[in-house]
Nucleic acid binder design. Structure first.
Length: 391
DNA sequence: CGGCCTTTGAAGCTA
DNA sequence: TAGCTTCAAAGGCCG
């Protein structure tokens, strides 16, 4: 709830942590921005010609737009990483992390010492965190990038990117030093007022059946992101789909991502459609993706609205380190997204969703301008159903 | 069939 | 620049 916290400083929720992190992290950002260099992309584009020719056997030839070309590079890079994953982990990965705040892709090569107390098991460091039960998120599917792709490299990328025509997105502030958390500074996040209130769905106590910190620290979550998961269902290689960022093996995202329909018979599909590039997932979205299945299993819930409420509370129950992992992952996703789609803007997707009914009603009601936050809370949260102690 | 619900965070927009 | 708006995922539910 950035809106609530933006003005004040006494709320100790995650947002404040982010602010605190940001204050520390601008230096490293310059370095990390170079991690995934344009040179890498260019090299990939040139070196992957053969691969793409081979891969044509597995899927029909596609006339690629500019975006699709970027996506193809994205896919190929992803594949390289996946193949690289099968190799022995490189010693320099650990060494690099030890040198400073880790700069590699955190959820693949999450350093063992990422936790000050070394909670993360070594085996957990080599796999992506984000679970893809039905398919890969465009960017989370690319998590298995090794450090060599995100290695801080000569600063040509940043300058290149900034000089690139059409690049208008600002470079994100570095959050890496966010996560150079003080040892022993593992503070439990004080729940903010917002997340504590107004459970709409009848939440059972399973939302806090066990503290997330323990579940995360255990292998339960990390161990699920084995290579097989990364590779997709039934061992399907990500390159078996048009784009790893785009195409999950199943599910609606498959069609949402670029409006590519499987049956292009209709009139609409014949019209050339500009691919829709989705927003990169934020930290909480990544967390939800990973933990949703776990919550479903624990609580035998299926409704996403209820699950999301539980996840929202668990999110606030996370320790700073635990949240930091997801913030870092989200940051990497944004970086990667920005580098692959430099001309993309979140604005591009504005209006893609139909306007919410409640917003329409709101407008037609009084005409009085109410904050979106107030609207959401008032409209969607009639009364707490569970006592606060359950939450 | 498509919007709603529900969550947090990022980014765009507006006054 | 503060505050507001939209979108991102997910899947059951409902009109």
């Amino acid at each position: 709830m950035p809106q609530l916290n933006s003005g004040g400083g006494d709320d100790l929720g995650a947002n404040d942590e982010m602010i605190a992190f940001k204050d520390e992290g601008e230096q490293d950002e310059k370095i990390e921005e170079n991690a995934f260099t344009e040179g890498d992309l260019a090299d990939l584009k040139s070196s992957l010609v053969n691969e793409s020719e081979i891969s044509q056997n597995s899927h029909p030839p596609v006339v690629r737009t500019g975006h699709q070309e970027e996506q193809r590079v994205y896919e190929e890079k992803h594949r390289e990483h996946l193949e690289h994953l099968n190799d022995v982990p490189k010693p320099q990965d650990a060494g690099m992390y030890k040198a400073s705040t880790y700069s590699g892709y955190p959820f693949l090569m999450l350093p063992e010492h990422y936790h000050p107390n070394g909670q993360v098991s070594p085996s957990a460091n080599k796999v992506a965190v984000v679970q893809q039960p039905h398919g890969m998120h465009p960017l989370t599917s690319l998590l298995p990038y090794s450090n060599e792709h995100f290695n801080p490299s000569p600063s040509h990328l940043t300058s290149d990117m900034s000089q690139k025509p059409g690049v208008h997105r600002h470079q994100p502030h570095d959050l890496s030093s966010f996560y150079s958390l003080p040892s022993g500074g593992v503070g439990q996040i004080t729940p903010s007022m917002g997340w504590q209130s107004q459970p709409v769905y009848p939440l059972s106590s399973c939302g806090f059946r066990q503290p997330y910190s323990s579940s995360l620290a255990s292998n339960s979550s990390y161990s699920r992101f084995s290579h097989s998961l990364i590779m997709g269902p039934s061992g399907m290689h990500p390159t078996g789909i048009p784009h790893p960022a785009i195409v999950p093996s199943s599910g609606r995202q498959e069609h949402d991502q670029f409006d590519i329909k499987p049956h292009p018979e209709s009139k609409r599909e014949r019209e050339p459609k500009k691919p829709v590039i989705k927003k990169p997932l934020n930290a909480f979205m990544l967390y939800m993706k990973e933990m949703r299945a776990k919550v479903i299993a624990e609580c035998t819930l299926k409704e996403s609205a209820a699950i999301n409420q539980i996840l929202g509370r668990r999110w606030h129950a996370l320790t700073r380190e635990e949240q930091a992992k997801y913030y870092e992952l989200a940051r990497k996703e944004r970086q990667l997204h920005m580098q692959l789609y430099p001309s993309w803007s979140a604005r591009d997707n504005y209006g893609k969703k139909k306007r919410r009914k409640r917003d329409k009603q709101q407008d037609s009601a009084t005409g009085e301008k109410r904050s979106a936050f107030a609207t959401f809370k008032e409209d969607s949260a009639p009364a707490p159903i569970l006592p606060m102690e359950v939450l």
